[in-house]
Design a binder for these strands. Structure first.
Lengths: 220, 220
DNA sequence: GAGAATTATGTCAGTGCCTGCCAATTGGCC
DNA sequence: GGCCAATTGGCAGGCACTGACATAATTCTC
């Protein structure tokens, strides 16, 4: 294993025994980690414990994940990749904001399958909230999101045939869109209950407020 | 020192010798840290080195800053507090977006003074770029920004007399605004040169694109 | 202004994350 | 079976950070 693969590459079909084994080890590490996190909290779980639960050495853990945060964010990272792929497959005629909006909703439709192949959905949702409420994880998550936004921006610019250095609109649109996505995730997390469907409704409602919120006079 | 004070409290006038000494130690730690970071990079600088340069023990360092990131972000944190205070002092008649926009610009006017009382402006700008290009620091910075946004949201809701649970507009507006602020900071950092004035121009230009970027048809 | 109370600092030991290095094992291929 | 390459384990060590306790510096009280 020359370098840590990102989870996008994981989508490729396993060719030989070696690949299948690696994938199994990785999935086991994720499952063990998320279960332990749910059981005793992120900070109180040590990497040694995760490695032991997955029956590998601590050293091997760090060959699969650059750090402890990575394994906590692993499923989110998969969903992020799916989101980007979904956006790319959107009809070219669609305007930027509807394309983004449509892509999130479509992603959430299909994400459950990807997730369930590794961990129970229930555990993933629990992890989702844990990330929002654990400072260190939230920080790492926000940084990853800013990378995702960079990808989105490039894709929007490509779709519209724009030069990112000359036209600020792709950057601005994605920034606003990303901001709303983050707020809804946070608010949904704070609520402490409610499933994926609630998150979906909240997101749609908030996205629809982007226009009104920017309007000058709120009292009109 | 029962708990680590946030830098907002630092604004209070030093009463006795004890307070003045603490402030001096804190400022020295910040200056030593930022100089070392500029000299040999964030990751290659150890807390021991910072403590030694400031002539205190490593243990004392951790009494002033919860972790190594905190000292790198110390000045930004001060500016954040100033920003929030500036927003609060804006005329009540001003609409939300103009109030935010005016507050950033006003803050950048007055921030230089606050900063220069601790570190040279040049060193601070250098640190600013370092944060953008150091993954761990960027993550910590983004998390702090999301806290700032929470404060902004509350203030906007207060100004407009709105209930945050009932009306999504404060959250949405601040999310969009914050997104743009982050993008401009990143782009400015990537440019690798240019001073505070360039950052200002970039920010204003991008903020003005918020409306157009959200418009349905970009080709019109 | 001396002593008591409070608060800041230093020292030390220990835990946990993470890395480099090398040896041992395992899978792929002839 | 036997060679090559990839994967893994074990170990030593660096660095961030914390708890506990002793010491030193300020402030308070009379």
């Amino acid at each position: 294993m020359p370098a840590i693969e990102d989870s996008a590459a994981r989508t490729a079909l396993p060719s030989g025994l070696r690949e299948r084994k690696k994938r199994r080890t990785r999935d086991t590490l994720i499952r063990s980690a998320l279960e332990l996190f749910a059981l005793k909290g992120y900070e109180r779980t040590t990497v040694d414990e995760i490695a032991e639960a997955a029956e590998v050495s601590q050293r091997t853990f760090f060959r699969y994940f650059a750090n402890k945060e990575e394994v906590a964010l692993a499923m989110q990272t998969s969903v992020d990749a799916l989101f980007l792929a979904t956006l790319r497959s959107r009809p070219a005629a669609e305007a930027p904001l509807p394309a983004l909006r449509g892509a999130v909703l479509a992603t959430w439709e299909g994400a459950s399958e990807v997730i369930e192949s590794v961990v129970p959905l229930e555990l993933h949702m629990r992890t989702y909230r844990m990330i929002e409420s654990t400072p260190q994880l939230l920080a790492a998550r926000l940084r990853k999101l800013s990378e995702v936004e960079e990808g989105l921006t490039r894709e929007i610019a490509r779709r519209e045939g724009l030069d990112l250095d000359a036209d600020p609109r792709p950057h601005v649109l994605v920034a606003a869109f990303g901001g709303v996505m983050r707020v809804t995730a946070r608010i949904w997390g704070e609520r402490g209950e409610g499933g994926l469907e609630d998150l979906r409704l909240l997101t749609v409602a908030y996205l629809d407020q982007l226009g009104p919120a920017l309007a000058g006079n709120w009292r009109a």
